[in-house]
Design a binder for these strands. Structure first.
Length: 549
DNA sequence: ATCACGACTTGATTCCACCACC
DNA sequence: GGTGGTGGAATCAAGTCGTGAT
């Protein structure tokens, strides 16, 4: 813990203390400033830094923060500071705003020095040796203390995430390697030599009690091999999927309710690429669901909707509290079953009350070794990309736009969303302006062409003929440019709340993209940036244009 | 069957450096 | 030369799924 500066936390509403007691907690006046102990001050700064963030205004966030903050206070501070609403973090906040201004105003040279320092750190700590190969580490820094920000309505938002000390950290390295030295005056919690796992270091995080790991970068051989395996299993599913579909269709008629539920659940997972939906501890996390944890309240059945029969309307919060909303026409038998599953249940009851992910995965594994619910997502995503690419790629279209569209189809399937960029509206307006300008130019060019043509009809000179040709060319070029801009506009509009990155990185067999690039003579750099090329090096190496997922 | 835990993948958001544009 | 827009990297939360104890 280091004190960068000393703040005065302004606390109002108390009378002057005659003798506050300790040296660290200074004199408190009403409503004058209070000097905090180092530990309490640091925690206070965590909050102060976030002041203009929306979640600091949330009651749960404030409550959790205040409770944890008070635990870090000295007894005296705890006596003085008992009401959150009377604390003013303004001065601290201003300090950090100033700091970031200062950082921005640093000279080029100063920035260069900093850059050099981080580079040195990366070189020293950012790599490890695995089976004699130097490999990049993904996250080689321990997570710093701060306030926990969960996603969605997280019951633990605002809680203090404590500082991790060497005494909390387990090091995992091989027997014969040189054990990394702990910082001076400290010891590691443990040094072990477990070659059945891939992590290099771990610690237990205090908010959720979960284990955090230091692991290798996706570019490493270890991760690459795993990635390749994943896609191979998904390809195996492609060969087997018709049989599996017949299996679960049979389940829809089973006299065992459990089997029926399983059959419908797998149908959803297959058709809609839903996640498995493990059960979660209530009150510990945000209330989100996946397939197996769907509740009655998350679906609405429509015998008929918008001219379609047997429509299921899904509306629930999935991973990261991202809303899944979809209206899907389903098989009649599925529809009937759903009705049955919902009978005599309350909205908050489980839709599939007889099954869970463990059971579901067990039966999937019986159908095909290695098959689990998530394989369907990978399979579905990669197949969709391949289909869309062959459907959309044409000479007429800009190839990258085709790729984007195919990628987008997958992102929509997987419900990968993002919050629209802050600058979205503005950049759309700019584009719109460009389009209008281009349109005007085109109109003018067209008029000129018309005139040139009529001139040419008047007197058929060679010169005028060339003028007509020239104007025709001009119109054509402008038309193309306009079309390109409009396409770009559509592309951007369609991408407003869709995130392409996740599917590209985790669901799309890179060999599909590599093969497509080779087939259509698109440089791989147009599709994958440097990091991505490193991660997918295995695929770039082994794939030719004939690859089929 | 149920549970807790451990390891690993997947995911949105935030941060930051760079580059086109004025 | 400043600046704002953007893509890529970093961050760290939140899933999936397997294991082993009860």
């Amino acid at each position: 813990v280091s004190r960068c500066t000393s703040f005065d936390l302004t606390v109002s509403g108390w009378q002057k203390m005659e003798n506050p007691g300790t040296q660290s907690a200074g004199t408190l006046y009403c409503p004058h400033p209070l000097r905090l102990s180092i530990v309490a001050e640091e925690v206070a700064t965590f909050y102060a830094k976030m002041l203009d963030h929306e979640y600091t205004s949330k009651e749960i966030f404030q409550k959790n923060f205040f409770t944890d903050w008070r635990e870090e206070m000295t007894a005296e501070e705890r006596d003085l500071i008992c009401e959150f609403s009377k604390c003013d973090f303004g001065e601290m906040h201003r300090y950090f705003v100033e700091q970031s201004e200062k950082k921005k105003d640093m000279s080029k040279e100063e920035k260069e020095v900093l850059k050099e320092e981080t580079k040195k750190l990366t070189e020293e700590y950012g790599y490890c040796l695995l089976d004699g190969h130097k490999e990049k580490i993904g996250n080689f820094r321990v997570e710093p203390p701060g306030l926990f920000r969960g996603r969605g309505e997280h019951p633990k938002m605002g809680k203090l995430k404590k500082r991790i000390l060497p005494e909390d950290i387990i090091i995992n390295c091989s027997n014969d390697s040189k054990t990394p030295e702990p910082p001076k005056g400290h010891k590691w919690k443990e040094v072990r030599h477990d070659d059945t796992v891939t992590w290099l270091a771990s610690w237990v995080e205090n908010v959720q009690g979960s284990i955090k790991y230091i692991m290798l970068n996706p570019s490493s051989k270890l991760k690459g091999e795993k990635d390749w395996q994943k896609y191979e299993i998904a390809r195996k599913l492609k060969l087997k999927v018709e049989t599996i579909r017949k299996e679960y269709e049979r389940d829809w008629k089973s006299k065992e309710m459990k089997k029926r539920q399983k059959g419908v659940a797998v149908y959803f997972i297959d058709k809609l690429a839903l996640r498995a939906g493990n059960e979660k501890e209530e009150g510990e996390t945000a209330d989100t669901v996946g397939c197996c944890s769907l509740r009655v309240e998350h679906i609405t059945l429509h015998k008929e909707l918008d001219g379609q029969e047997c429509v299921v309307e899904f509306d629930f919060l999935g991973k990261d509290s991202i809303r899944y909303y979809n209206k899907v026409p389903v098989d009649k038998r599925v529809f009937k079953n759903l009705k049955l599953f919902m009978e005599n249940k309350n909205p908050e009851d489980d839709l599939f009350d007889r099954i869970n992910t463990t059971y579901l995965n067990k039966t999937l594994n019986n159908s095909m070794t290695g098959l689990t619910a998530k394989v369907f997502r990978t399979y579905n995503a990669s197949t969709t990309l391949q289909e869309q690419l062959s459907k959309l790629t044409s000479r007429m279209w800009h190839k990258l736009l085709s790729y984007n569209r195919a990628n987008r189809a997958v992102a929509i399937l997987c419900n990968h969303q993002r919050t629209a960029p802050k600058t979205f509206e503005k950049s759309m307006q700019n584009l719109q302006q460009k389009i209008e300008l281009k349109q005007k130019q085109l109109d003018e060019a067209k008029a000129e062409l018309k005139k040139a043509k009529s001139d040419y009809r008047e007197s058929k000179t060679e010169k005028l003929k060339r003028l007509v040709e020239q104007k025709e060319k001009m119109v054509k070029r402008l038309q193309e440019q306009l079309k390109k801009l409009q396409l770009q506009m559509t592309d951007r509009e369609e991408n407003k709340v869709i995130a392409l990155g996740t599917s590209k990185l985790n669901y799309l067999d890179p060999r599909i993209s590599v093969a497509w690039c080779k087939k259509f003579d698109v440089p791989i750099e147009k599709i994958y940036n440097k990091t991505q090329r490193d991660k997918f090096a295995w695929a770039i190496d082994m794939t030719n244009e004939d690859f089929e997922f």
